[in-house]
Computed example of a mutant assay.
Amino acid sequence: MWIALAVYLPIVGSLAAVWLQAAPWWAAAPVLAWCVAWQASLQHEVIHGHPTPWRWMNRLIAGPPLLVFVPFDRYRDSHLAHHTDARLTDPLDDSESWYVTAERWRRAGRVERSLRWTMNTLAGRVVLGPLWLMAQAVVTDSRDLVAGRRLFPLAGHFMQLLALAWILSAVGVPLWGYLALVVWPATGMMLIRSFAEHRPDPSPACRSVIVENGGALGWLFLSNNLHALHHERPGLPWYLLRRVYRDGADGILSRNGGYRFDSYVKLAATYLFSPRDHPIHPLYR
Rank of each mutant, 00 (worst) to 15 (best):
M1Q: 15
L5A: 03
A6S: 08
L9T: 02
L9W: 00
A17M: 00
W19Y: 12
Q21Y: 05
Q21D: 13
Q21H: 11
A27P: 03
L32N: 02
V36K: 03
A37K: 07
I47Y: 05
I47Q: 04
H48R: 06
H48V: 11
G49C: 11
P51F: 02
P51A: 07
T52H: 10
M57C: 13
R59Y: 15
L60C: 15
V68L: 13
V68D: 01
Y75I: 03
D77L: 11
L80N: 10
A81W: 02
R87L: 12
D93E: 15
D94E: 10
T101I: 07
R106S: 09
E112N: 11
R113M: 10
T118C: 10
L122Q: 02
L131P: 04
M134N: 08
V139T: 12
R143N: 14
D144G: 13
L145F: 02
F152H: 14
P153T: 06
L161T: 03
A170I: 05
H198A: 08
R199L: 05
D201V: 02
V211R: 01
E212T: 09
W219R: 09
L220P: 04
L226V: 08
H227N: 08
H227C: 05
E232Q: 15
R233F: 12
R233A: 08
R233Y: 15
L240R: 13
I252P: 04
S254D: 12
V265H: 09
V265M: 10
P282M: 02
